[in-house]
Design a protein around this nucleic acid. Structure first.
Lengths: 208, 208
DNA sequence: CATCTTCCATAGTGATCAATATGAAACAAT
DNA sequence: ATTGTTTCATATTGATCACTATGGAAGATG
């Protein structure tokens, strides 16, 4: 095995004077709290401890910095994808998604709510492409969940009449709603009860 | 009965050259689509057909114009309040709220989604008060619904063990989520199926 | 050492932001 | 017609927006 270098070092030139990943994390936290358009470059430079030219050299522009922050946000060890593919049943996948959201949206070290859900809900026409990219990410998760639900139908976990599209949309809508409740100040305990309540809508068995 | 004048006329001075209510409606539609902070004054003046000084004379500032638009948005003949108080059961109130939301969020003559749900989700620190006012409006609706659910428990419509707070939060979260689904392009027909799916989580009867 | 490459810090770009100063215009009252 | 009041259109305010031009600093390479 080769040496596991922490960052692949530049061959030449002045070295980076800041930790790119730590700076990106600060940007993520700021975008998480205030959203894409309401986070200004001067907010970002202050939080990241990096001057504007360095930000632009390292990340491109504000849009690409935001997308990099969203990518980082979604690239933990546990993602929606790993939950959906790893759960034993579609029901268990949905339950873990909802419970995990309730917990993740009420962390004490992070802003309330969800960056993917709240980062670019309403924005100007100029930011329509960023809004569309987040919508596509949400749509991808929903499509994966719908597929998992459809598999549950074929495997007999779910009734044949189950509307996979509506059920996946329902779970996604709940996650969006949990984000808003969290941003409005709801406690983790309440969000968990709301999430548990949502699971009551899950089809009960392979009958009908 | 006095003469029902369409607008109480000024006693003196140059008359208003624009329809205040029509201008407010245009502002509402713009805020509805782009949210509070991402709607600029120049966007507003263009859509309302009114110059900046007239807007400030008629509505105060951008913040009060937005709140006036939200008030107008919420003050139709059918409101969350009339639905909650008018429905025969808490269940019927929830069903009407969800179905009404699915329809209202996918109107062809209005922007997708909900102004109250999406107008100020993530915003800068300067707009925190506006965000808080919308949160308070949402909280008021949720509290009313929770009260109606609690009444359903005492009247035997709902099981004694029903968690009124969680159930009301669940309905509110669903409405928030329906708004995002609509903004992401979901059809009215899909939203209605998602809303119907959500109603499956409703407690079934006065047992347990 | 000199040279090359890359990054940093300072300062500033034009554009747009919300909000206004100014004075003329439009009405009622006299 | 004159006065008083209110609204109008025009132009602009200082602040902030995302972004960058410039030149020196920091390292590797020779």
């Amino acid at each position: 095995m080769e040496d596991a270098l922490p960052k692949l070092p530049r061959k030449t030139g002045r070295p980076l004077s800041f930790d790119r990943d730590a700076a990106l994390e600060q940007a993520m936290l700021l975008f998480w709290r205030h959203g894409y358009e309401s986070t200004s470059l001067s907010d970002l430079t202050a939080a990241m401890g990096v001057t504007p030219p360095s930000i632009y050299a390292a990340f491109g522009d504000k849009r690409r910095l935001f997308l990099a922050a969203v990518h980082r946000y979604l690239s933990g060890p546990v993602t929606a994808e790993t939950i959906i593919e790893g759960a034993g049943t579609a029901r268990e996948a949905a339950r873990q998604l909802l419970e995990g959201s309730a917990i993740a949206f009420t962390g004490t070290q992070t802003p309330p709510g969800c960056l993917l859900a709240s980062g670019a809900i309403s924005c100007s026409a100029e930011a329509a492409d960023v809004q569309a990219e987040l919508a596509a990410l949400r749509g991808g998760i929903e499509a994966r969940l719908a597929k998992r639900i459809a598999r549950g139908k074929t495997e007999g976990e779910l009734p044949g009449g189950t509307d996979a599209e509506a059920l996946a949309g329902f779970v996604m809508a709940m996650i969006q709603g949990l984000s808003t409740l969290a941003r409005d100040g709801a406690s983790r305990e309440k969000l968990l009860r709301v999430a548990a309540n949502a699971m009551l809508a899950w089809p009960s068995g392979p009958s009908a």
